[in-house]
Amino acid sequence: MPIGAGSSLHYLVGPVIAFVVLGLLALFMRWAFGTGYGRDRVRRTATPPADDGLLTLVATLSRRESALALRAVLSDAGIRSTVRCPAPHRADVLVFPEDAARARSLAAIFPGN
């Protein structure tokens, strides 16, 4: 078999192709599953949620622990609720609209306010 001038580097072709494919795959994965930096990300984290969906805000407390205690009181009364912490030192308690009046009356007498 004749040996050509460029055949001494043939053992590098396979690994070079593999590294190029892995690099392209890594770039694609970063693009497809990235968190999205830039103006969009800052805008989303800087503004509080404007829509509570199906839930109604019944109380805003300064500590998450107090909000969880109020949530336990509401749960004992048979009211489903959730806690949202939109900012440091702020916790919102949300309930469904049909339970909002009862939840507000319980929140008014709750000592954690």
Results as ranks from 00 to 15, higher is better:
P88Y: 07
P15H: 00
V58G: 07
A67K: 00
S7E: 05
R84V: 15
R63S: 15
A67S: 03
R39K: 10
A69N: 01
R63V: 12
R43D: 08
R102Y: 07
R41Q: 15
A50S: 13
I3D: 09
V13R: 04
F19H: 08
S81R: 00
G78I: 13
F96M: 15
R104H: 09
T47S: 11
F110P: 08
A59K: 04
R64V: 14
P15K: 02
T45E: 02
L54H: 14
G78E: 12
I17E: 08
R44Q: 14
F33E: 13
L74V: 12
E65Q: 10
A103I: 07
G4I: 11
L74T: 02
V42E: 02
S105R: 15
L27R: 07
V58P: 03
R44L: 14
L24S: 03
V83Q: 02
I3H: 13
L9G: 13
S7L: 05
S8R: 10
D76Q: 03
Y11V: 10
A87G: 07
A77D: 12
A87P: 05
I109C: 13
R39W: 10
V42T: 02
V95W: 01
H10Y: 08
S105L: 13
S66K: 06
G23A: 09
T45Y: 00
C85Q: 07
L25R: 12
V16N: 07
R102E: 14
E98D: 08
P49Y: 01
F33T: 06
L70A: 02
A32P: 01
G38V: 04
L68W: 05
T56K: 15
D92N: 00
F33W: 12
P2S: 11
A91L: 06
P48L: 11
A69D: 06
A72I: 05
T60I: 09
H10A: 14
T60S: 07
F28R: 07
S75L: 08
L9T: 12
S62M: 01
D99W: 08
A32D: 04
C85A: 06
F19R: 13
S66H: 05
G34T: 02
V93G: 00
R71P: 01
M29P: 02
P88W: 08
F96W: 07
F33G: 03
A101L: 08
F110T: 07
E65T: 05
L68I: 14
V42P: 00
A59P: 02
G4A: 10
G6P: 02
T56S: 15
R43H: 10
D40A: 13
R64D: 12
P49G: 09
G6F: 10
Y37D: 11
H89M: 08
P48T: 07
A59V: 05
R102L: 10
R102T: 11
R104N: 02
H89S: 09
